[in-house]
């Protein structure tokens, strides 16, 4: 071991050259292995890196953020969006009621949702999954997800759309390690897309398979963009974060109905304020035989199903 024998401190020239050569080879190998990074197209600025959690953003900072998002969307898609940070309204708790007698399984809600919420088109991310269930069972494992008949509804089946159930005790919120998702005062569970670390623990926790992950950068074209955007809602998402149904907060927090409800040709979907005893949903919950999915999990959904007959 010639070089290490040459006692501490003094390194002879040959060994110095050799070590430099090793170091240079090592660096070159590391650089070569990192070569794919040349195609990295997300430039994450220091501001992005150090961005605060939604709940720590001051109002004036939020103004700056909204302006930045507007600029980014305009730059990327050539469409100038109207981005707002919509807060829950006081005295409002939203619930959905879905009439399984009326649902015909046409999936219009699925597509209206995609058009409304700026989801990635390729691969297409959908928040609503409609199950075709054979009559006589309530076992989702017997359902078909990719049913594709000429016309719906098919004889002998009923149809059950499933999306985020806006639980009162949401397992997804409980497991999130960084509080990137939480339940707002109006009962809608939202996600801070700029805080989510993409660990997908919420996807594992959700008993309704309601959450979706952006495995790649969402692909959207200019004509796909819905310019009416909310910060915690349908603004375009970055790669590597989780998203899900947020009951169209860009609409519902501004006094409108969710897109899935408006698209439904049979009026199977009802949406409203459960705190208002005169609302349609309050009436349904009082008068109809209503149930929730997987009640035994104790998630206490704000999404109710009922049969009309």
């Amino acid at each position: 071991m010639p070089e290490s024998r040459s006692s501490s401190g003094t390194m002879n020239r040959r060994s110095f050259l050799r070590k430099s050569a090793y170091a240079a080879t090592g660096m070159a190998a590391i650089a070569a292995s990192l070569a794919p990074l040349r195609d990295y197209d997300d430039d994450i600025s220091l501001d992005d890196f150090l961005r605060k959690h939604y709940k720590e953003i001051e109002p004036e900072e939020m103004e700056v953020m909204l302006a930045k998002i507007t600029q980014e969307v305009e730059h990327e898609y050539g469409v100038r969006p109207h981005v707002r940070d919509l807060k829950p309204m006081a005295g409002v708790e939203f619930v959905t009621a879905l009439n399984l007698t009326r649902c015909i399984g046409c999936r219009k809600c699925v597509h209206a949702c995609v058009a409304e919420n700026n989801q990635s088109r390729n691969p297409e991310i959908q928040y609503i999954r409609v199950l075709e269930m054979p009559n006589g069972t309530f076992d989702v494992e017997q359902s078909s997800h990719d049913y594709d008949p000429e016309t719906v509804p098919r004889e002998g089946f009923y149809y059950m759309p499933v999306q985020c159930q806006q639980c009162r005790q949401p397992p997804c919120v409980k497991v999130c390690p960084v509080e990137a998702t939480w339940q707002d005062a109006d009962g809608i569970t939202v996600i801070d897309y700029d805080w989510c670390i993409g660990c997908r623990y919420c996807e594992a926790a959700c008993p309704y398979w309601a959450r979706r992950f952006n495995f790649s950068k969402p692909s959207l074209s200019a004509e796909d963009i819905n310019p009416d955007m909310a910060y915690l809602g349908n603004r375009p998402r970055p790669r590597g974060v989780v998203e899900k149904c947020h009951s169209c907060i860009q609409r519902t927090r501004a006094g409108r109905y969710p897109a899935c409800l408006e698209a439904c040709p049979t009026g199977a979907r009802k949406f409203g304020n459960i705190l208002d005893p005169n609302s349609e949903v309050s009436q349904i919950l009082r008068d109809k035989r209503v149930f929730v999915l997987k009640e035994e999990h104790g998630t206490r959904p704000r999404f109710f199903y009922y049969f009309d007959v």
């Binding site: 994450i44 890196f49 959690h53 720590e56 409980k174 497991v175 999130c176 390690p177 960084v178 509080e179 990137a180 805080w195 989510c196 670390i197 993409g198 660990c199 997908r200 623990y201 992950f213 952006n214 495995f215 970055p238 790669r239 590597g240 974060v241 989780v242």
Partner: peptide, 26 residues
């Protein structure tokens, strides 16, 4: 496994925003 490894610091106590003691991942 993280979708956003650049945000790993959100998980670090006293720096990020750790959902402790609720989240078992925390």
């Amino acid at each position: 496994d993280l979708g956003r490894p650049d945000r790993f610091w959100h998980m670090i106590p006293f720096w990020g925003r750790v959902n402790f003691p609720t989240s078992i991942l925390a």
